[in-house]
Computed example of a mutant assay.
Amino acid sequence: MFTVLDRISRPGHPDKPNEDICGVSGDWAWVIDTSIFPGTLPVMHEKSDAVWLAKFANERLSNLAPHAEDGVTLLRHVMEEARTVYRAIAPVERHEDFLTWPLGAMTLVHRKGNVLDAWNFGDTTAYIRQPDGTVQVLGDAPGLRDFESAKAAELMRQAGSRPTAILGEPVFLAWLGERRERQRKSGIPAALLSVNPDAADRVRHETAPCEDGTSILLASDGFSALVDLYRAMEATALMERALEAGLEPLAELAREIETERDPNGTLYPRFKQSDDTTAILLRA
């Protein structure tokens, strides 16, 4: 059983919906960071189909996880249900057009005995702090962050732009269009939380020791940026500060870096000035 020590979920911009969510149910917990290709009209939610997917997955995980034994089976079940609901509402031309689907990075963890299983899609992260203070980091976020930051730097330099405007620049839209076309030609939907249940077979799986007293922090990339983009602290210090003072000061630090220290994205190139920032801190 997990005890929730703290949780936080903030939108990256006050005028935009928060497409992150986190949750816990018994020996299971998760963080989800959804998105959709810019310009895709919503059909499942008034503002963003990504919001719909995050809320749907959170609700179904909350109900199904207590009875589950395996993360892959659980994820497949949730995505099968999402597909059924999506196809009942979305236009038929979207049913197989995966470029119009909402997608999600996510980390799902399950404690069984003294072992923690972690299933990961995309750039969400699990930080595991053992009772002796050692910290293990699970997930693909650092490598994915390096690629994204380098691309953001390149496109902002070409456009003479900044994070608050780059998403509307012709050079970004051209790159996005090429990326979409490459994905379409591949014919293979991304290995992410989505309305494609087959993606469950491509989820990354890792394990970590998890005896009583182990602390676990699940974070979206808007929160883990403190470690893997802004380099404000190492993972060990992140866990120590989270346990000492909670998640709010850490979220505030991220916003200070984004809005005061580096609003132009010159120190830390990125596609948004501030991203949705979500984390849940647990103790086993």
Rank of each mutant, 00 (worst) to 15 (best):
Q130V: 00
A245D: 15
E59W: 05
R204W: 12
V31G: 04
G113P: 09
H110L: 10
R202V: 06
A237F: 03
F223C: 10
R111W: 03
R10V: 12
N114T: 11
Y86G: 00
V227G: 02
V51L: 05
A65L: 06
I89E: 00
L253P: 14
L116S: 04
L5H: 07
T277D: 12
V137F: 04
F271M: 08
A190K: 11
F37G: 02
H205L: 10
R182G: 11
R162S: 13
L53I: 01
A165K: 09
E211D: 14
V195P: 08
T40E: 15
K16M: 08
E234H: 10
A219G: 10
I280W: 09
E181S: 11
P38K: 05
L53M: 03
A237P: 05
F2T: 06
M1Q: 14
W28A: 03
E80K: 07
V24I: 04
S25Y: 01
R202W: 10
R145V: 13
A251Y: 10
G71Y: 01
L193Y: 06
L61S: 03
H205D: 12
I280S: 12
Q183P: 05
I8F: 07
N264L: 13
R129F: 01
G139N: 03
N196M: 05
G222C: 02
L108G: 04
K55E: 15
G187C: 06
A174R: 08
R261H: 15
E178I: 00
A118K: 03
H45D: 06
V115W: 00
S62N: 09
T259W: 12
R270L: 08
G122C: 04
E46N: 12
E178N: 08
H45Y: 05
A50N: 06
M156C: 09
A237R: 09
R180K: 11
L281D: 15
A279K: 07
A57Q: 00
D276H: 02
A251S: 15
L250D: 04
F2S: 03
D275P: 11
M106G: 09
F56Q: 01
L192T: 10
K55N: 15
A174I: 00
P66M: 02
